[in-house]
Amino acid sequence: MSVKLSGPLADRSSWSTEECSIGKAMEAVGSRTAMVLLREAFYGTTRFDDFAARAGVTDAVAAARLKQLVEVGVLEKRPYREPGQRTRNEYLLTQMGRDLFPAVFALMQWGNKHLQAAGGPLALVDGETGEPVTVAARTPAGEEIAPEDIAVRVNLDWLRQAGPR
């Protein structure tokens, strides 16, 4: 099973992977800690101490990864102040961060299926019906499509914008 490489991509030796979007995404959010912090953001965590505790990392590691996620644009810092306390920052998902939802929960779905006994400790379900929810590749019409039925082609809009290489 593999996706189909079409057009000039069919000859894999004739093109470079330097601009690979998967590689760029992994540079931005590819550490275990970053993904666990994103999981916590999706679960509603906003405060630094809660992120560090829930992710099971030191304050230094949490600070470094949260800073990275803010720099990339996945999270934003927003100041808050509780009465009698100093001003602190909370961390909120940006639209860029919210767009990671399918990727984060596809990893959860994969882990539940392949790495956990009995489907894992948590399940994604429809909030109203309780029906199971899955992350899958779909056409614009909403039809699920198997990886072997997907073709990868050159994005001409990207080429026009990126210019000659």
Score class of each variant (00 low, 15 high):
29 V>C: 11
31 S>T: 15
89 N>F: 05
98 R>A: 06
60 A>H: 05
66 L>R: 02
102 P>V: 03
132 P>I: 11
68 Q>M: 11
39 R>I: 00
139 T>I: 04
34 A>P: 02
95 Q>V: 02
132 P>F: 08
33 T>D: 12
68 Q>N: 07
109 Q>E: 05
112 N>F: 07
65 R>M: 09
48 F>P: 04
41 A>P: 00
15 W>Y: 09
21 S>Q: 15
107 L>A: 15
78 R>S: 12
126 D>S: 08
60 A>E: 15
81 R>G: 01
78 R>Y: 03
133 V>C: 02
13 S>R: 04
33 T>M: 01
73 G>D: 01
26 M>D: 03
3 V>E: 02
50 D>C: 10
59 D>I: 06
35 M>N: 07
121 P>K: 15
32 R>E: 14
149 D>H: 02
9 L>R: 02
77 K>Q: 13
89 N>C: 06
101 F>S: 14
3 V>C: 11
17 T>Q: 13
97 G>S: 07
86 R>G: 14
141 A>Q: 11
144 E>L: 04
107 L>K: 09
65 R>Y: 10
68 Q>D: 07
145 I>Q: 05
148 E>I: 00
52 A>M: 02
156 L>M: 12
82 E>N: 12
66 L>F: 03
161 Q>M: 15
59 D>E: 14
102 P>R: 07
20 C>M: 11
101 F>G: 07
2 S>Y: 11
30 G>M: 10
14 S>E: 13
124 L>N: 05
121 P>G: 15
25 A>G: 08
140 P>I: 08
100 L>D: 06
108 M>K: 11
137 A>C: 10
162 A>T: 08
53 A>H: 13
74 V>S: 00
93 L>K: 07
59 D>Y: 13
50 D>S: 10
8 P>R: 12
38 L>F: 08
111 G>W: 11
41 A>N: 03
80 Y>K: 07
141 A>S: 14
74 V>R: 09
130 G>E: 13
31 S>F: 00
35 M>E: 02
159 L>I: 08
38 L>E: 00
146 A>C: 05
155 N>M: 11
28 A>N: 11
63 A>E: 13
61 V>G: 05
155 N>Y: 07
130 G>C: 07
73 G>R: 08
157 D>V: 13
48 F>Y: 04
98 R>S: 07
106 A>W: 03
151 A>D: 01
10 A>F: 06
13 S>T: 02
88 R>S: 03
